[in-house]
């Protein structure tokens, strides 16, 4: 066991060279590579963290926007519901008004129809009554209706001749109005009665198709008349009473 000092010196030199070589070709590249890789990992982690923060911020923004949209949606739904209710109320009110209007018009129509029917019925009643009266007078008394009317009016004229004379005032003309022209005999009788009861008063005969059957004598502001209206009015009242009773009974039966 001996030490070769030349070899020792050479080995020291070799070792120092090896230290330098390994430092240059092993330690530094490896450690620098590790450091660079760690720096790269740190950088990527930092980028990932930033990207994550950015994503979280974007997510928060989207969530906020979603909440706002939901709130807007609720408000829009609420508004639409309110508008729908208003529209429905408006349409219902319009429908009700229209219905009421139609009901009113229908009632008016019914009323007009009733009046029309009543008028027709009255006219028919008048005609019938007139014919019956005329036929009864002819059969029983061999008389005409017009002459009977003239006689009736003459009687009334005798009762109120004074009042008519007073009511006539300055007027010197009396008008005898009928729906149809009076027969000549009836005219003469009527004219004679007027000349007798109202001296100085001239009589003029007139026809009015709208007038009820009968005779109306107008002297100034007063008049004396016999028309079939009073009879047909009673007939109408009787019909109305009967009709109302029948309708009431029908409604009671329907409800029962």
């Amino acid at each position: 066991m001996s030490i070769d000092w030349i070899t020792v010196v050479a080995q020291i030199a070799n070792f120092l060279v090896l230290v330098w070589l390994l430092k240059r070709f092993l330690y530094r590249p490896i450690l620098d590579g590790i450091d660079a890789r760690e720096a790269e990992i740190t950088r990527r982690m930092s980028e990932a963290r930033k990207a994550q923060e950015k994503a979280q911020a974007a997510e928060a923004g989207y969530r906020k926007q979603q909440a706002r949209l939901l709130a807007d949606q609720d408000a829009m739904i609420e508004q639409a519901l309110s508008a729908t209710e208003n529209e429905r109320d408006t349409l219902l009110a319009a429908a009700r008004a229209k219905l009421e209007q139609e009901q009113k018009e229908w009632h008016k129509h019914l009323e007009r129809e009733r009046h029309k029917f009543t008028a027709q019925l009255q006219r028919a009643g008048e005609e019938t009554l007139l014919e019956l009266t005329r036929k009864a007078l002819h059969d029983l008394a061999d008389d005409t209706l017009e002459e009977a009317i003239v006689r009736h009016v003459s009687k009334q004229l005798q009762v109120i001749a004074g009042e008519l004379s007073h009511a006539a005032g300055d007027s010197t003309e009396a008008v005898a109005s009928t729906r149809d022209a009076l027969p000549e005999a009836a005219r003469l009788r009527m004219q004679a009665e007027v000349e007798k009861l109202l001296p100085g008063m001239t009589l003029r005969f007139a026809t009015d198709p709208q007038q009820a059957p009968g005779l109306i004598l107008r002297v100034g502001g007063a008049q004396v008349a016999w028309t079939i209206d009073s009879y047909t009015d009673e007939f109408d009242a009787l019909l109305d009473e009967r009709t109302s009773a029948r309708v009431s009974g029908r409604m009671q039966n329907d409800n029962g």
Partner: peptide, 30 residues
């Protein structure tokens, strides 16, 4: 100067160490 086996074998070990290190670490990229 006599170059003995100790020195030569040392060079062989050094060559192996440096050569392997050099080959592996020559193209390092992060």
């Amino acid at each position: 100067l006599d170059v003995n086996a100790t020195i030569v074998n040392t060079w062989i070990v050094m060559a192996l160490l440096v050569g392997i290190s050099r080959i592996i670490t020559r193209n390092l990229r992060a």
